[in-house]
Amino acid sequence: MLHNSDLKCPDGTTAAQRLFGHPFPDLFESVLSTFTELPMPRRSTESQQPNPWYSQPVSA
């Protein structure tokens, strides 16, 4: 259903506009307008332990 309300023909209309006979608000603009500033990521309460397998030399 997304393609009916966002993809436009060369004349600038969408399939939904041609089917229902009236324009619709821009789908992505209406979704993006509902977002506020994103929160900061949580800080871990555990200390970051280095991965013991990372950068270990391996014989070929």
Rank of each mutant, 00 (worst) to 15 (best):
T45V: 11
T13S: 11
Q49A: 09
A60I: 10
F24H: 09
P23V: 09
R42T: 06
D26R: 03
L27N: 02
S55N: 15
S5L: 13
P41F: 03
D11I: 06
F24Q: 11
S30W: 01
F28N: 14
L19N: 13
P23I: 05
F20V: 15
A60V: 13
P50H: 02
Q56W: 04
S44D: 10
S5N: 05
D6V: 14
W53M: 05
E29P: 00
K8F: 00
D26Y: 00
Q48P: 00
P10Q: 07
R42N: 07
P50E: 10
L2T: 09
L7I: 13
A15I: 11
A15R: 10
Q49H: 10
Q48H: 07
P41G: 07
S5Y: 12
D11F: 00
M1D: 14
R43S: 00
T36C: 04
A15M: 09
H22E: 10
Q56D: 01
M1T: 13
V31C: 08
Y54I: 05
M40P: 11
T13F: 04
N51I: 02
S44M: 10
Q48I: 13
P25N: 05
P39E: 09
H22K: 07
L19C: 13
S47V: 06
N51R: 03
T36V: 02
S59I: 11
P10E: 01
Q17P: 01
S44F: 06
Y54R: 09
C9M: 15
R42W: 14
A16R: 12
A60H: 12
L2M: 10
M1H: 13
T13L: 08
V58K: 15
N51W: 03
R42C: 10
F35W: 10
Y54A: 06
T45I: 11
D6Y: 11
S47A: 09
S55T: 15
S47L: 03
Q56N: 03
G21F: 09
T36L: 05
P39I: 01
Q49Y: 04
S55R: 15
S30A: 08
T36H: 02
Q49V: 12
F20N: 15
S33C: 01
K8S: 05
L32R: 12
T36G: 06
A60F: 14
D6L: 12
L38H: 07
K8Q: 13
L2G: 08
F24R: 02
P10N: 06
N51D: 13
A16F: 09
S59M: 10
S44R: 11
P23L: 04
A16Y: 07
Q17A: 02
A16W: 06
F28E: 06
C9A: 12
P52I: 03
S55P: 02
T14C: 06
V31Q: 08
K8V: 05
K8Y: 02
N51Q: 05
L27H: 05
M1Y: 12
E46A: 15
F20L: 14
P39W: 00
L27M: 12
L27R: 11
F24E: 01
S5G: 09
S47H: 10
